[in-house]
């Protein structure tokens, strides 16, 4: 079971969180024209890297904040966690 550091609550067990996918995907702006290609990329296309991956998790059984987690998909090592408003380098 992973041990995830919520930027608001501290280190908590994985069972308090739910997974939310790639954090680097940016939704096209609302009320703005978007090409089909850009939209399809946003909705469907995801990289599935072996190694470092910046992803979203939600602390559902805690503060309910969505957070960013940089994790190695092969080893599960977590390098960094951050608020969604912060950048992960």
């Amino acid at each position: 079971m992973l041990y995830i550091k919520c930027p608001y609550c501290g280190l908590r067990a994985q069972k308090e969180f739910s997974y939310g996918g790639d954090a680097t995907v940016k939704r096209p702006n609302i009320n703005e024209e978007v090409s089909s290609e850009d939209w399809d990329n946003f909705v469907y296309m995801r990289k599935s890297p072996r190694g470092k991956h910046i992803e979203l998790w939600q602390h559902i059984a805690g503060c309910r904040q969505w957070i960013k987690v940089q994790r190695d998909t092969a080893t599960h090592e977590i390098f960094q966690t951050a608020k969604v408003t912060e950048e992960i380098r």
């Binding site: 609302i30 979203l56 939600q58 408003t85």
Partner: peptide
């Protein structure tokens, strides 16, 4: 609820 929180916290803060 998670869906709404996602949009409020991440997409349209």
């Amino acid at each position: 609820l998670s869906h709404l929180e996602y949009y409020l916290q991440i997409v349209w803060p």
